[in-house]
Design a protein around this nucleic acid. Structure first.
Length: 672
DNA sequence: CTAGGGTTAG
C-alpha cells in the first residue's frame, strides 16, 4: 500500500540549470552558479543559500553552516541540490554529528529519499533523541510503522528519552498496525513525559484508541486531557462516525467553540460513509455558507463526491466539480478519480471519460485506472474495460485485486465469457495477482449469465476459499435467468444461512416458485420471511430534475403530480400493445389474478420516476433514474419501448449496473 | 509532531 500524499511541486519561477551548463572546468565543485537576472520578488527563498555556500568554501567546514543549509532545503523537493551539498560536505571530510545528521535526514525524507536518510542515520556514532526523532518521522512519513516502533525501542535501549515529538509518530504507527497492546504500552510510558500538557500526544492517543482500541478509551482520553485542541475534538468525532454513532458526533460538533476544515470534513465524510448522503450534502452547503473563512481542501471534495455518487445527484456533482476547479483542486489525481467515479455513478459516462482523458498520461495512478475500468464495467462497456486495462498495463502500472474485479465484472456485464476466463486464468501467472473470493464470484457470475450453470457450480465447489454470499448470489441469479429451479434451491439454501436477513434471496426463489406455479412453496417462503421478521425491501426510484431529487416508492401516490403520472402510465399499455409489447407478469411475488398483476407492474417505482421525467423535462433531455433494487424484466421491456416511442435516451441505474435505453434497445443487451 | 481520504462484485 502506498502512502499517497499530494506531492508538492516546487513551482519555481526558473529552473535550476543543468550542471554542465553552469560549471566551467575552472569552477570548483562547491561553487553553484545561478542565473539571477530576474526581478527581486521572484527570487526564491533558498537562493540566499548561495552566498552561504560560497562562504563555506573558505573557512574550515562548520557543522552549523551545513545544518542551516540542509534545514532550508527541507520540504522543498530539492533532492539534487541536497545531494550536491551532501557530497560537497563529504569531500571536505566533515563527519556529521547527531545534530547535523538530523537535519540531513529531514531533508532526505522530505524529498522522498528514505534510503539516504537511513544511510545517514546509520553512520552517526552517538545518536541523540533529536536524531532518533528525525528518523522516526522519516519512517512514519514513508509509511513504515514497524520500523518506526523499532527505532523507538532502540532509542530507549540507548538510554535516550522519548519526548512529545516521539510519541505522536509511535502512536500513529500503533494505530496503523492496529496494535492496541503496543499502543497501551506506549501510552503508559508517555505518562512519564508529562504529556498532559501536550495536545499532540493527547490527540495521537485518542486517534490510536479510535483506530484500534475502543471508542470508550478514546473518550476517556479526551475527558482526561487538560489542554485540548480542535484536532482532539476532530479525532473523537471521526471515532464516533466510524462506529456509526452519528448523534454523538453531531453533539460534539455542535458543542465546538471553533471548528476548522477538518471538523467539517470529518462530519461530511462521516455522513457519507454511513449512507447519509443527503445529510452530507446539506452539511457541505452549510459549510460553504458559514462565513468563517472555511475553505474546502482536496480531502473535503473527496469526501463529498461519494455522497453525490450515492444519491445520483449529477447536478450537485457538477457544481462541486466547478467549485473544485475554482479553488484549483481539480488537478489533484485523487480528486480526479473521485470525480470520475462520481460522474460514472451518476450515469454520465461521457463526463467520466472527459475527466479521465484530461489527466496527463504519466500522472494516472492505480486508483485512476481502476476507477475508469470499473466505470466502463458498470455501464456494460466490457470491451472498453478491457482496453483500459490493457492501456494501464502498457503504462506500466501494476494491477491489483480491484483492477481485476472491475475487469471481470466488465466482461460479465457484457457477456465476454471467454475473454473474462482468459484474464481470470492469467491473473496469477501473468500479472502476479492472487485471485480472491470476489474474483471467483465474478467468474461464477460470468459463467452463470451465459447459462453455463454446471461449470459455475463446479467453480464454487473447487475454489480454494470458502464461497461467500456473492458467489452463491451470482449463481442464484443465474439460475433464475436460466430457469434452473433445482440448482437455485441449493444456492438459496446456502444463502439463507450466509445472509439470513437479506430479503432479495427469498424474493428470487419465491419468484421462481411462482413462475413454476408452485404456490405452496411460495406460501412456505412467505411464512419463513414472517417468522424471521424480514421485510421485503420496498422498491424505490428517484430522479433529479432541475437539481432537485424526486423519490418514488412502488405504488406511490404521494407525489403532487400523481394524477398526471398515473394517467400517463395508464395510457401506455395501449400504445405499447400496438407496438407489439406483451407485459411479463412473472416478477410479481404474490398469487394474484392476471389483471391485478398488470396493475402492480404499472406502479413500479422506476416506471413512476420515468413517467415523471418524461412529463417534466424538455424532449432532448436524457432521463436518468436510479433504483435501489435490480430492474425487473417488465420495466426493462417497457422502458425499451418508451425510449423508442418518445425518442428519449433513458439511463437507469439499478442496484448493480447501468442500463442505457435508446431507440427500443438497452445497452445491456437484455443480459443483466 | 496530531485530526479529515478516493477505486470493489452481487
Amino acid at each position: 500500500m502506498l502512502h499517497s500524499r499530494p506531492t508538492q511541486q516546487p513551482n519555481l519561477p526558473f529552473r535550476i540549470p543543468k550542471p554542465h551548463q553552469t560549471r566551467t572546468p575552472s569552477q570548483s565543485h562547491s561553487q553553484l552558479h545561478f542565473d539571477v537576472s530576474l526581478p527581486k520578488h521572484q527570487i526564491p527563498p533558498w537562493l540566499s543559500l548561495v552566498s552561504t555556500l560560497r562562504s563555506l568554501a573558505q573557512d574550515p567546514p562548520q557543522v552549523s553552516s551545513y545544518a542551516a543549509i540542509f534545514q532550508s532545503l527541507t520540504g522543498k523537493n530539492l533532492l539534487r541540490l541536497g545531494r550536491q551539498v551532501h557530497s560537497h560536505m563529504s569531500l571536505r571530510a566533515l563527519e556529521p554529528d547527531a545534530f547535523l545528521g538530523a537535519k540531513m535526514i529531514a531533508m532526505y525524507a522530505s524529498a522522498g529519499d528514505l534510503r539516504s536518510a537511513v544511510a545517514v542515520f546509520r553512520r552517526i556514532k552517538y545518536p541523540s533523541a533529536l536524531l532518533c526523532n528525525s528518523i522516526i518521522r522519516a519512517y512514519s512519513w514513508h509509511w513504515f510503522p514497524k520500523k518506526t516502533i523499532g527505532v523507538y525501542f532502540r532509542m530507549r535501549s540507548l538510554g535516550l528519552k522519548a519526548d512529545h515529538f516521539t510519541y505522536p509518530f509511535v502512536l500513529k504507527s500503533c494505530a496503523d498496525l492496529s496494535d492496541v497492546r503496543m499502543g497501551r504500552y506506549a501510552h503508559g510510558l508517555s505518562l512519564r513525559t508529562g504529556f498532559e500538557e501536550d495536545f499532540y500526544v493527547g490527540t495521537s492517543l485518542i486517534n490510536m484508541y479510535v483506530k484500534c482500541g475502543g471508542i470508550g478509551d478514546a473518550r476517556k482520553m479526551f475527558d482526561v486531557m487538560t489542554v485540548r485542541d480542535i484536532s482532539s475534538w476532530n479525532a473523537l468525532i471521526a471515532g464516533y462516525m466510524k462506529i456509526g454513532e452519528i448523534r454523538l458526533a453531531e453533539d460534539l460538533f455542535g458543542r465546538m467553540v471553533r471548528r476548522n476544515i477538518v471538523s467539517w470534513t470529518a462530519m461530511i465524510s462521516g455522513y457519507a460513509q454511513n449512507g447519509l448522503a443527503g445529510q452530507a450534502l446539506v452539511l457541505f452547503d452549510k459549510m460553504l455558507e458559514d462565513d468563517s473563512g472555511i475553505k474546502p481542501t482536496w480531502v473535503t471534495i473527496m469526501s463529498v463526491l461519494p455522497a453525490c455518487a450515492h444519491s445520483a445527484a449529477l447536478e450537485r456533482g457538477r457544481e462541486i466539480h466547478k467549485l473544485a476547479s475554482r479553488i484549483g483542486l481539480d488537478s489533484d489525481v485523487s480528486v480526479q478519480s473521485a470525480l470520475i467515479a462520481m460522474y460514472a455513478r451518476c450515469g454520465s459516462l461521457a463526463e467520466a471519460c472527459q475527466c479521465f482523458d484530461r489527466i496527463h498520461q504519466h500522472k494516472k495512478d492505480l486508483v485512476v485506472w481502476n476507477t475508469m475500468i470499473s466505470a466502463y464495467a458498470s455501464h456494460g462497456r466490457g470491451l472498453e474495460s478491457v482496453s483500459t486495462f490493457e492501456d494501464m498495463i502498457r503504462a506500466r502500472i501494476q494491477p491489483d485485486i480491484i483492477s481485476f474485479t472491475g475487469l471481470l465484472s466488465g466482461c460479465s456485464h457484457s457477456g465476454l465469457v471467454d475473454l473474462g476466463i482468459k484474464y481470470f486464468n492469467r491473473m496469477k501467472t501473468m500479472y502476479n495477482v492472487e485471485p480472491e473470493v470476489q474474483h471467483c464470484a465474478c467468474v461464477v457470475d460470468l459463467l452463470g449469465r451465459a447459462g453455463r450453470l454446471v461449470e459455475a457450480k463446479e467453480l464454487i465447489d473447487k475454489m480454494p476459499m470458502q464461497a461467500g454470499a456473492s458467489a452463491w448470489g451470482a449463481l442464484l441469479a443465474a439460475c433464475r435467468k436460466h430457469r434452473n429451479l433445482e440448482l437455485a434451491e441449493v444456492a438459496a439454501k446456502k444463502l439463507f444461512v450466509l445472509e439470513p436477513y437479506s430479503s432479495a434471496n427469498y424474493v428470487h426463489l419465491s419468484n421462481m416458485y411462482a413462475e413454476a406455479g408452485m404456490w405452496k412453496e411460495v406460501a412456505n417462503l412467505r411464512d419463513l420471511l414472517k417468522y424471521r421478521g424480514i421485510r421485503k425491501t420496498p422498491g424505490c426510484s428517484w430522479i433529479e430534475v432541475n437539481g432537485k431529487a424526486h423519490m418514488f416508492l412502488g405504488g406511490d401516490t404521494s407525489h403532487p403530480q400523481t394524477r398526471e403520472i398515473y394517467m400517463f402510465l395508464e395510457s401506455l399499455p395501449e400504445k405499447m400493445k400496438q407496438a407489439g409489447y406483451v407485459p411479463d407478469t412473472s416478477p410479481v411475488l404474490h398469487d394474484l389474478s392476471e389483471e391485478e398483476k398488470e396493475h402492480n407492474l404499472t406502479s413500479h417505482s422506476e416506471k413512476l420516476a420515468i413517467a415523471f421525467g418524461l412529463l417534466n423535462t424538455s424532449p432532448s433531455t436524457i432521463i436518468r433514474v436510479t433504483k435501489n433494487l435490480r430492474i425487473c424484466v417488465d420495466c426493462h421491456t417497457a422502458t425499451k419501448f418508451i425510449s423508442k416511442i418518445f425518442r428519449r435516451e433513458i439511463i437507469v441505474r439499478d442496484l448493480n449496473r447501468f442500463h442505457h435505453f435508446t431507440d427500443g434497445s438497452c445497452s445491456c443487451g437484455d443480459y443483466w
